[in-house]
Write a protein that binds this DNA or RNA. Sequence first.
DNA 1: CTTCAATATCAAGATATATTGATTTATTGA
DNA 2: TCAATAAATCAATATATCTTGATATTGAAG
Lengths: 107, 107
Amino acid sequence: MENFLDTISALNDETRVKLIAFLDQHGALCVCDMQSSFGMIQSRLSRHLKILKDGGFLRVDRCGTWAYYSIRSPLDRFRSEALAEIRCLGIELPPLKKLSETGDCKL
Amino acid sequence: MENFLDTISALNDETRVKLIAFLDQHGALCVCDMQSSFGMIQSRLSRHLKILKDGGFLRVDRCGTWAYYSIRSPLDRFRSEALAEIRCLGIELPPLKKLSETGDCKL
DNA sequence: CTTCAATATCAAGATATATTGATTTATTGA
DNA sequence: TCAATAAATCAATATATCTTGATATTGAAG
């Protein structure tokens, strides 16, 4: 029940649904790229990403000081269905701004 | 997006997940039966049932002053998956107390 | 038409979640 | 070792959701 509610509450926020859609569209992204793309302050983004990770939707790969988030794979059946549902919503997403590429860390 | 979040937030509450499981197990029940089974005050139950109905999970059939709630059928794909997930949770539910059967309204 | 019973709605307070800005941690490179 | 940078965490406030008790609505029965 706890685990189910973690999964559900991870989805229960517009910002987080958009983040899932964005990562689904662009693959692995680091926090600062999402930050610049969404125009969102870092602490807010970091908190939402943690909730999505704890909810079983995302994985993190660290490369030095950078943290690359991506959709966890494979997703279990229910989370896959949730992702499929999100894909069908036709959410408008901001253009990707890859700030990290002016840096030098390669994933 | 709105519709999706209504669906998700309907699931985002332990009481409501239990109500879905209870109705899934017992079929159509009127409010007072759930009220006595769960030992929950009427206004609280009524509110949760409304949220589940608006979220697309339940239907209501009225018979005089009685309101019988049941799992809506057919559920769309995502909601079916959610129900399947809930069935797997092994939630402990209270025994059914059919207060309504001491009355005289037959569904 | 009045009363009663089942349910729905409303207003207030309690609890949980989200947002912000500041601080902390961890890693890199000088 | 020290400074700089990316990210995480914390504390305070803002916002949303849940719970309760009171009141309103609806239909049935006298």
